[in-house]
């Protein structure tokens, strides 16, 4: 019965796409959460919406236009944050509104009726084709490869920007890199859970992992593991309950988060500190 789900080609593709995203999204999510940039993911996902709408409007493959728009948006946010002309939150609010407003206008101007708003907002993992999987795999390899190459530097900048600067690291460059990786991850994850829930794929597994992990490295691997579990469970529930998988994946992730919080609360002992 469990393997029934794999009897369908579309389910195989959906599961493959979702697992690739589940492995990649938390790797970027760990750095975003610890740098207090969780809201940036939400904002970028709305810029992704504008990018998808632009692709639909221009009649080009939407993931490509979304990728370009989101990467440019992420660099714009990073630039504004660094120049301190606007506070971090204010910059995000502007781009959030721009993405949503621009996206809805472009989509309504488009005559391509085949694209449904709900599939953009809530995901359409069951409709992923091989071109989608090609894009998702490419972006995942790029993201994981980049983090592997710059792991220790990205950890250092996340731990303390000033200390990293004193060591001569190009901190601004790493800030741009993280923004770009976040943008790429969001475009990849959008097809699975939709833009409204996309940051949940990166942020919530990270938060769950942080409840249990005993090192930074362990946080990353545990978050990946929990995200993959969420995807498996979410897809199975969606398949047998006949509900949208984007929603069940996110709900499973949130449930796992609450379980980890409960587990941490139960195992917590009196915190005795010594000098």
């Amino acid at each position: 019965m469990v393997l029934d789900i794999l009897a369908y080609d579309f389910m195989q593709r959906a599961l493959l796409a979702a697992i690739i995203v589940a492995i990649t999204a938390p790797v970027v999510g760990v750095f975003m959460v610890l740098r207090r940039l969780s809201l940036m993911g939400e904002t970028l996902s709305h810029i992704t919406f504008a990018g998808v709408s632009l692709g639909v409007f221009l009649n080009i493959f939407p993931l490509w236009s979304a990728l370009v728009a989101t990467v440019l948006g992420s660099m714009g946010i990073a630039k504004i944050r660094q120049s301190a002309r606007l506070s971090g939150d204010a910059a995000l609010a502007v781009f959030f509104a721009l993405g949503l407003g621009g996206g809805i206008v472009l989509l309504s101007l488009s005559r391509n009726v085949a694209v449904s708003l709900s599939s953009i907002l809530f995901g359409s993992v069951l409709l992923v084709g091989w071109e989608d999987i090609f894009v998702i795999s490419g972006t995942s390899i790029f993201t994981l490869g980049t983090v592997f190459l710059f792991y220790k530097e990205m950890f250092y900048v996340t731990l303390d920007e000033d200390l990293a600067k004193v060591s001569g690291l190009p901190v601004n460059w790493f800030n741009y890199l993280l923004s770009i990786l976040a943008a790429i991850m969001i475009v990849a994850a959008m097809r699975v859970v939709g833009i409204l829930m996309v940051s949940a794929m990166s942020v919530i597994p990270t938060l769950a992992s942080m409840q249990l992990s005993r090192s930074f490295r362990q946080t990353i691997f545990l978050a990946m593991f929990l995200a993959v579990i969420s995807v498996f469970l979410g897809m199975f529930i969606a398949f047998y309950a006949a509900v949208p998988p984007g929603g069940t994946i996110v709900l499973t992730t949130v449930s796992i988060f609450f379980l980890t919080v409960a587990a941490k609360t139960m195992r917590r002992k009196p915190n005795v500190k010594t000098s």
Binding site: L34, R35, R36, L149, F150, K152, E153, F155, Y156, L159, D160, L163, A164, S167, G168, L169, P170, S209, M210, S213, R214, S215, F216, R217, Q218, T219
Partner: peptide, 25 residues
């Protein structure tokens, strides 16, 4: 450490002392 929940070990923190522009990659 930005917040007390930053998930890192003592060793991971001290290791950042060995990171410089020269040993990137």
């Amino acid at each position: 450490l930005q917040s007390q929940n930053f998930p890192t070990t003592v060793y991971e923190i001290v290791a950042t002392g060995r990171i410089s522009r020269e040993n990137t990659f």
